[in-house]
Amino acid sequence: MQQLHHLLEVDNLSTSFFTYAGEVRAVSGVSFYIDEGEALGIVGESGCGKSVTVQSVMRLIPSPPGKIVSGQIRFLGQDLVKLPEKQMTTIRGKSMGMIFQDPMTSLNPVLTIGRQMTEVLQRHEGLGKQEAMDRAEKYLEMVGIPNCKRRLKQYPHEFSGGMRQRVMIAMALLCNPKLLIADEPTTALDVTIQAQILELMKDLKQKINTSIILITHDLGVVAGLCSRIIVMYGGKIVESGTVQDIYKSPQHPYTWGLLKSVPRLDALSRTKLVPIHGTPPDLLKPPVGCGFTARCAHAMKICAEQPPGITEINPGHQVACWLLHPDAPKSTFDEKGRVG
């Protein structure tokens, strides 16, 4: 399965924010890759570093106080960490597209949608005005916006939340990017609208073969769309693998916790949820050992002392947990506790 060149390869990325109180290690030592045409999900709670990771990839970390401390981000044969800002701007517009949680903040309220879309095309693709308009119209149609001709002349506030997110997706895809990064694209939307957007993304993935990184805190959202999943906690990757690995044989107690703490609509009877106790670690003073120790029901002495290494269960399924050490007692994910 091993490919020689991944589309994007992040190697040992660490990003910190230097605040008055000290260094907040938002992301520390994160490595992952994504291949062409693949959809990767990054799952974790707020503050786990998932957004900072992709913002580092896009080089959109506000600096100061943020800074990429170490690591490499290889994309299309270039190390993005070392790239000058000017070239980065081209990459951001052309080869990578990004969708944010709140589309209103990334759309300019005083320009029409058409103007904003054609501007991107004129700048990055060198298209003429009419050509750009046509392309914009085509993309709006593709993301399922009716009356696109008229819609192009409208301002962002004239669109509903779901429609705005569609516009954002259309804009992100305008220059046929290799990689589409979606940062919680459906969190601010209602479920019926979320379903619309997810269907659309699934549809687009098949149609245009763009790689997608989908960031979310909702394990349900990624289950249908992504083929591989990364679970992040406290600025580190705790488990990564295919959807089957993560949902069917999760190995990290945090992944167990995530799966058990959400009620399932298809649960047969009313069972108690199993919450993860406590709160995530303060990354201003990250714990010495495993970041999850304080909240982990299976914590051992070693967990508080040393950070766990990475164990590969089967090709592609990697877990950072001491429980997988041969000397550790065996604990497994109890499916019954969830479905009952």
């Binding site: 406590g278 002495k301 070693i302 002392e305």
Partner: peptide, 16 residues
């Protein structure tokens, strides 16, 4: 790593 390291960690639930 000593086997001892793999004994359960005694920690209070209120780690808040």
């Amino acid at each position: 790593i000593s086997v001892e390291s793999f004994s359960p960690l005694q920690q209070g639930l209120k780690a808040e």
